[in-house]
């Protein structure tokens, strides 16, 4: 039940993070930028617009994909938040979260290709290519974390393992490489420059988003923003956060702890999503995949290091 209660919380937090992202991005370009709550205004505005379904699309798939994508991404984020708040979790929930993130991406792809627009089809094929690149290294790095926490697949146990072991997981060589791998995969999973190839604005006119408008677009954008939130939260709690290393904070009660985690996740969001978006140009699909070959190699190296005990 706490899960359902978490939905509004996740909604507010993700859109707020997205607002911070846009404001920072604008300030780095010497612009004033939208107010921090602009994503809320956008969401409300989009929900009030007309529902248009293109004639060449298959209506049932076109529409249900949007609701399912928004729901699955919010479910994934809520699972994480519930575990952090309730300090409990069940076995395999980390796999559930990763599955939900992947399903959001797959659903948006399907939505794009069902729109009947050639740009949507191209977005679909590009997204498949990108998935090959980033999904597996992400999973490998997560498995490394679970190995180091004593072979557990439960999220809170992994976080707790860091508290007990008194060492931040990111600071041991094998796990440090794993955190680097995960950080390099976040821009691709979040769909930002330099890896926003499936939804490139100038090349394929937003790829899968091209035929979506009104409430459908609102839900899909929400799904994207919640996915970004999930990824940065995951990164911070698994790789950086350890209550023992921040004794000042953990001395207070758990709400301060939660606030600390959220601020840390915001910092991760800024570094892994906003900074690449501002500083880099977009890559072509072949070049991006060649980059991810290196990331694959790095993840296997870190897995090997962890196996031998580093």
């Amino acid at each position: 039940m706490t899960l359902a209660v978490m939905f509004p919380g996740v909604f507010v937090l993700s859109l707020l993070y997205s607002g911070f992202d846009r404001k920072l991005h604008a300030r780095m370009q010497r612009r004033v930028g939208p107010p921090l709550i602009q994503p809320f205004y956008d969401f409300v505005k989009l929900m009030n617009k007309e529902r248009i379904i293109p004639a060449a699309a298959s209506p049932s798939v076109f529409v249900t994909v949007t609701a399912l994508a928004a729901a699955s991404s919010m479910l994934g984020a809520s699972v994480l938040m519930t575990n952090l708040v309730m300090e409990a979790s069940f076995v395999g929930d980390i796999m559930l979260v990763m599955y939900l993130v992947l399903m959001t991406a797959a659903l948006t792809m399907i939505g794009g290709s069902s729109s009947g627009n050639p740009y949507g089809a191209i977005g679909f094929s590009r997204r498949v290519g990108m998935l090959l690149g980033y999904e597996v290294p992400m999973l490998i790095s997560l498995l490394i974390v679970s190995y180091r926490s004593g072979l557990t697949l439960s999220f809170y146990d992994m976080v707790a393992a860091q508290s007990i072991a008194d060492v931040v997981l990111a600071f041991s060589p094998g796990a440090a490489l794993a955190s680097l791998v995960f950080a390099l995969c976040i821009p691709a999973a979040a769909g930002v420059v330099p890896f926003d190839i499936p939804e490139a604005k100038t090349e394929v006119a937003y790829g899968y988003l091209i035929e979506y408008g009104g409430p459908y677009l609102g839900l899909l954008k929400l799904a994207k923003e919640v996915t970004n939130f999930t990824l940065s939260l995951l990164f911070f709690t698994l790789f950086i956060y350890a209550p023992q290393s921040f004794p000042v904070v953990s001395a207070y009660n758990e709400w301060v702890n939660l606030l600390f985690i959220l601020v840390g996740a915001l910092a991760v969001y800024m570094v892994t999503i906003t900074l690449p978006r501002t500083l880099f140009a977009r890559m072509k699909l072949g070049q991006a995949l060649r980059f991810y070959v290196w990331v694959w190699a790095l993840s296997l190296v870190s897995a090997g290091l962890v196996m031998v005990g580093y």
């Binding site: 604008a26 300030r27 780095m28 370009q29 010497r30 612009r31 004033v32 930028g33 500083l279 880099f280």
Partner: peptide, 16 residues
């Protein structure tokens, strides 16, 4: 580009 971005953050925006 990173230096430019930091410099932009610390100065006033050019838009009104």
């Amino acid at each position: 580009m990173f230096k430019e971005a930091v410099r932009a953050l610390l100065s006033r925006p050019v838009t009104v």
